[in-house]
Nucleic acid binder design. Sequence first.
DNA 1: AGATCTATTGACTTTAACGTAAAAAGGCGG
DNA 2: CCGCCTTTTTACGTTAAAGTCAATAGATCT
Lengths: 132, 132
Amino acid sequence: MQRYFTITQLTQEFDITTRTLRFYEAQGLVTPQRRGRQRLYTPGDRTRIKLILRGKRLGFSLAEVKELIGMYGSAPGETGQLRLLMEKIAARREELLEKQRDIELTLLELEEVEAGALARMEELSPVTSEER
Amino acid sequence: MQRYFTITQLTQEFDITTRTLRFYEAQGLVTPQRRGRQRLYTPGDRTRIKLILRGKRLGFSLAEVKELIGMYGSAPGETGQLRLLMEKIAARREELLEKQRDIELTLLELEEVEAGALARMEELSPVTSEER
DNA sequence: AGATCTATTGACTTTAACGTAAAAAGGCGG
DNA sequence: CCGCCTTTTTACGTTAAAGTCAATAGATCT
């Protein structure tokens, strides 16, 4: 098993540029080790990158993604901090649930459009019952 | 029932600025009527605005949203156009389904973090079995 | 009509998230 | 050691999506 990934390996795997990865690093989203000046990414770093990209797909900003990822590692000692963490979790969950509803609605609407389109196609080129 | 909405009514309802609505108009996402220079939004316009904001919440760009909304009104006559429409629908559906999976994963991870946090709280302030 | 509000337009600015280009620094094959 | 290649740094450019500001232009209240 490979201990480290190079930057180009990861850019190829995730179809992003080196600029992007270095930018994420500058924003404090990943902190690969160095061998001299060269970056070495651990499997953990790779996972974080996956999480970043997933967050982006969901429309979160990098700042939001950073906060989200920050939660994963943290088991803060103080009760106050824990309460704060729980609140953040609740807030994120609400957002995600809203997005789920948004998606459901959009999928339903797409279905309607599709049904309409199918009906139009039937109209235009009748039965063709032998296809499929 | 109200036939028209003013721009400020809509900005208040959706918690956006007038600048935003005029920008959407400049991008061809809504085309309110005019009474003199004043904009008058129909219930249909209002619905489009809702769709725009929903698309944005899901991380779509305005250009993508425009394409999406464009599908709703269209029942193109030509078979070729219909086929194209169906393909677009399929593509959007794929994206949305991926987002659904992304959300599921994120929710699961949040649950884990929450469970960890809860455990830590138990540790710190024991039982308190009378609460709730 | 005058004063005051609100809406519109146009120009310029801002922010996030990179892209692009140039220069320097290692690493490697011959 | 030399030339070549990749990586890194630094700096500046770009794009989408508005924000901000100033100058009108109507509309409204009195």
